[in-house]
């Protein structure tokens, strides 16, 4: 791989632009295919091949194209996890999610909670959740989890998440807590969107410690992401 091509891939990834590296496994010649562009001076691809690569790029698929010796490696932006509430469970959840390849941001306006001492290198955001969510703009590759257990912090985040394409929304709290939450959010006009909230959050694994609960949340997130 030419260094210039490698750096262009890194640039595209940094700019959250999907890109596929297409390699002729016979000669080693390579080119790049974008959703709406092409940079393949060393490779002659037919229009049909470019279309096929773009179809794969949309679904983050990698592999060899048909019977050809053309190998496609799709690079798409990382999935994100926005954790609202810098609580004990959030510490374990951030660590597990990072290990699973998510970009993690922990949001909590309470500066005593959202500290580097508690979260290490994890990105922290001390804006109020409504401002934070407006800035971070959850999309179809984003999961939003509320853990603060305080309606002042959790509800605005849920409101924003429910009005976004977030692929997963989960809220910590018992069934009773959730029933009261549904009442409050119904008054804000969320209505039928509220079924998107996974609550009580997480798969029922029976765990009790903060790390076990974090694991059950991440397990549910994985299950939803892959439609299992």
């Amino acid at each position: 791989m030419k260094l210039a091509l490698l750096r262009e891939v890194q640039r595209a990834r940094a700019d959250k632009q999907p890109v596929a590296v297409v390699t002729d496994l016979g000669s080693g010649a390579q080119g790049l295919v974008y959703a709406d562009g092409l940079a393949a001076p060393d490779l002659s691809l037919t229009a049909a091949q470019v279309d096929a690569v773009r179809t794969w790029l949309r679904t983050a698929r990698s592999g060899t194209l048909g019977d050809s010796e053309l190998f496609v490696r799709s690079y798409v932006p990382d999935y994100r996890l926005l954790i609202v509430g810098a609580v004990h469970i959030a510490q374990a959840l951030a660590a597990l999610a990072l290990e699973c390849g998510y970009q993690v941001t922990v949001i909590d306006p309470r500066r005593a909670f959202a500290t580097a001492a508690r979260f290490g290198d994890v990105e922290l955001c001390t804006q109020w959740p409504d401002e934070a969510m407006a800035r971070l703009a959850p999309d179809a590759q984003t999961a939003v989890v509320t853990l603060a257990h305080d309606p002042k912090i959790d509800d605005p985040a849920l409101l924003a998440a429910l009005n976004s394409d977030a692929f997963y929304i989960g809220a910590l709290g018992s069934s009773r807590t959730h029933a009261r939450r549904v009442e409050r959010l119904t008054q804000q006009g969320l209505g039928e969107k509220l079924v998107r909230i996974h609550a009580p959050i997480g798969l029922q694994l029976g765990g009790r410690s903060h790390a076990e609960i974090a694991l059950s949340i991440l397990a549910q997130l994985v299950q939803v992401r892959y439609g299992a």
Binding site: L6, R80, L81, L98, Q103
Partner: peptide, 18 residues
């Protein structure tokens, strides 16, 4: 925006070549 999780192989290649 968020910390990338796994150490990135492509970034490391670039670092080595540099």
């Amino acid at each position: 925006m968020g910390l990338a999780a796994t150490p990135d192989e492509l970034i490391r290649l670039d670092e080595w070549v540099r």
